[in-house]
Nucleic acid binder design. Structure first.
Ligand SMILES: [Zn+2]
Ligand SMILES: [Zn+2]
Ligand SMILES: [Zn+2]
Ligand SMILES: [Zn+2]
Lengths: 168, 168
DNA sequence: ACAAACCTTGTAGTCACTACAGGGTCAAGC
DNA sequence: GCTTGACCCTGTAGTGACTACAAGGTTTGT
């Protein structure tokens, strides 16, 4: 089976297959005399394993680890559980943060109902006011502490453990 | 105000501020005689606007557009509404797909309860079976049509409108 | 005079691909 | 035997939104 056929059977682009090989996720296949990659059922399984894990949102690094655990049969499965648990946690946090985001976007959308001049648009006004320091759900300039929650990429005063003496 | 002070006031890294300037999101500030960037309240507002939009999950391209709408006061706000609606749609679809993902991960996690050899781990077994063609929620090799749903990065037979005659 | 803290530019790295460019190979048809 | 076209190869560069240097210049305090 050549790379195009493997691509067709898995639904994975041929360039992506080569990329996985380069990244060491897929074992290097045999080559024909002219240098064409020739795949067999084993590699088909390997690739499907990768694709399935990717569809579960795992990073290539995670998949590499998982494949190593799979290869080493004496290894216990604690690390596997940890990896899946971390993945679940990651996905869960993403969902939480996106839900908050959706709320904020819906609230913002609610500021404008029908078409009119951009200058009077409630959406734009809300956005500009937020930028100018009016209180908003996500946004706290000048290092005032914000009221409780903060989503994923909260943009005020997060990690500045610096001197902060302030030169004008 | 120098770049470090702006960084401190906004919680945005100085290198990111320079990046936004390079990308044309932030207007180029005045320079001191020695070439240092000097910012004023206007640019503080500009940056906060960007950061606030970013925290709403907008791309830099979207923010550039939004800033252009803001600048052109004769423009009507239809495009603004469209942009926000698209953003809401994007976020909503992401949530849906992540929820499905979470279900799948929880189901997978349920296959293993206590530590044992990786060779016997239900998680790994489930993953390998999925790769070998056993039915699974996301995964359909060999172009069989899958049973109804598919999440974001479904990996089987999506966009191969190609010749598909198959050379072994 | 010197160090610390700041600033500058430019380049390269991240992740998981994607898109060429510039070639080589193979089977079928004429 | 030659052309056509589908397929394959390598290598490089681009995406988005940063992040992390390297190598140097400036300002401020002691
Ligand atoms: Zn409006
Ligand atoms: Zn904000
Ligand atoms: Zn287990
Ligand atoms: Zn699958």
């Amino acid at each position: 089976m050549l790379i195009g056929e493997l691509a067709r059977q898995t639904g994975c682009d041929a360039e992506t297959i080569r990329y996985y090989e380069r990244e060491g996720l897929l074992s290097a296949p045999q080559r024909s005399s002219s240098g064409y990659r020739r795949y067999n059922a084993e590699q088909l399984g390997e690739l499907n394993f990768i694709l399935h894990c990717r569809s579960l949102g795992m990073s290539l690094a995670d998949i590499r680890n998982l494949a190593a655990f799979k290869a080493d049969h004496r290894h216990d499965c604690e690390d596997i559980n940890l990896l899946i648990d971390q993945q679940i946690g990651k996905v869960h946090r993403q969902i939480e943060s996106l839900r908050l985001l959706e709320q904020q976007l819906l609230a913002l959308r609610d500021k404008c109902h029908d078409t009119h001049s951009a200058a009077d648009c409630g959406i734009l006004q809300t956005l500009v006011e937020a930028a100018e320091g009016e209180p908003c759900v996500c946004h706290t300039p000048f290092g005032q502490d914000n009221h409780g929650h903060s989503h994923d990429h909260d943009h005020a005063a997060k990690k500045n453990g610096r001197t902060q003496k302030g030169r004008p």
